[in-house]
Amino acid sequence: MGQQRVGVAVLTMGNRPAELTRLLDSVAAQDTPATRVVVVGNGTPLPALPDGVTGVELPENLGVSGGRNVALDRLREFGDVDLVVDLDDDGLLIAPDVFTRLVARYEADDRLGIVSFRIADERGRTQRRHVPRLRSADPMRGGPVTTFLGGGHALSARMLDETGGWPDAFFYAHEETDLAWRALDAGWKILYDPEVVLQHPWTEPTRHAVFHRMVARNRVWLAKRHLPAPLVPVYLGVWTVLTLTRTRSVAGLRAWCGGFAEGLRTPCPPRRPMRWATVRRMTRLGRPPVI
C-alpha cells in the first residue's frame, strides 16, 4: 500500500461556531496534513471557514447519516482521499500525531476498515458508553471490536466503495452499527485504538429530543436489514428487556414504544442478512449480534 491520504469530514448544525473553529485549528496542526477537509452545514449556513476547507451548505437537516454521506460524496469527487476521518464539531484533536497514527495503522493492514477513537473529556475521562466492547469498561484496552464511535473515527475509502456509505434513512442513532455490521460481513476489520483521542465534552445521549424514538426504530431496522431470521426476535427481545429495565422516564418509554412500532411496520430495505460466519466472528470478538 502507498501513502494513505487523509480526508476530514465535519458536520455542524451552526450552533457551535467557536468549537468548530478550534476543531479545524487542531486538524490544521496535525503532523500529517489532511489532503482535504469538508465541513457540511446540516440545514444551516456556514461561518467563514479557513483557506483550503471546503464548505457545503444543505437546505435542510439530513441527519447524521445523510449529512455524512454528503461529505463522503464531496470527498470522492476530489479523488485523492484514502481515509475518511469523521469528527464531531465540538470535538478537538489534542495531539498532533492523530493522522500519523492512523496512516501507520492502515498502511500496516490492508483489511483494516474502521478505526474507532477514544472519546475523552477535558479531564481525560471516557464514558462507559464510549468503550465499544461489552466485557471491559477499561477505556485503555484496545483491539478488534464489532462497532465504533460516531464522534471520532476513520474509515477506509476502499471499504466504503465495497460496503456503501451511511444508511440515509436512519437519520440519527445506530448508523455506526449498521455500517460496522456491513463492514464485518464483507471481511473488514474494526479496531478500537485508545491512543487516538478525540476530546469531547461529557454528554448524555438523551439530550437529543428524538433519542428514544429513533433508537428503538433504528434498532428494529438493524435487525430487519442485517440479522439472520432466527436472530431477529432474540435481538429485539433482549433489547426490549434491557430498555424496560434501564429506562426510568415514562415519556421516554412511551417514545421508545412508538419508535419500536414504527420500525416494525415500516420497511428499511434492502435486507441482506449477514453470514453465519460473521455471527461466529462477532461472537469470538466478544459481542454476538443479539445484544
Results as ranks from 00 to 15, higher is better:
R141I: 02
V39H: 03
Q127Y: 08
H153L: 09
L92F: 10
Q199V: 07
R111E: 08
T44G: 13
R125W: 08
L253C: 12
G52S: 15
M1I: 15
M13G: 03
R182Y: 12
P289G: 07
P59A: 12
F171H: 05
A29I: 09
V37E: 00
T126Y: 04
A157L: 09
F99L: 03
E122K: 10
G41P: 13
V53K: 00
R271A: 05
L242D: 00
R271K: 09
S136F: 04
L112D: 02
L112H: 00
R217N: 13
V241W: 11
H208Y: 12
L160Q: 00
M282G: 06
P17S: 11
L198S: 07
S249Y: 07
D73S: 11
T278F: 03
T245D: 10
T147A: 04
D185M: 08
G151E: 00
A95F: 14
P289H: 01
S65Y: 13
P288Y: 08
P139C: 08
P288M: 13
A120I: 01
D121R: 05
R105M: 05
P139L: 08
R135Y: 01
V56P: 13
R76E: 10
V56Y: 13
R36Y: 00
G113K: 02
N61V: 06
R105H: 06
V115L: 00
H212R: 13
R284L: 06
G252A: 14
P59R: 09
P230Y: 06
V215Y: 07
T240K: 03
A180L: 01
R101W: 09
M274K: 14
T54Y: 04
P50A: 15
G263Q: 03
L222F: 08
G66I: 10
V38S: 04
F171L: 02
T100D: 08
P167D: 13
M140Q: 01
R74Y: 09
V279E: 01
A277T: 15
T147R: 05
D138M: 06
G150P: 00
H208M: 10
P205N: 13
R141S: 08
Y192C: 06
Q4G: 09
A104F: 01
G14W: 11
G187M: 14
R123G: 12
R111A: 10
P194F: 14
A180H: 03
A157Y: 03
T146C: 00
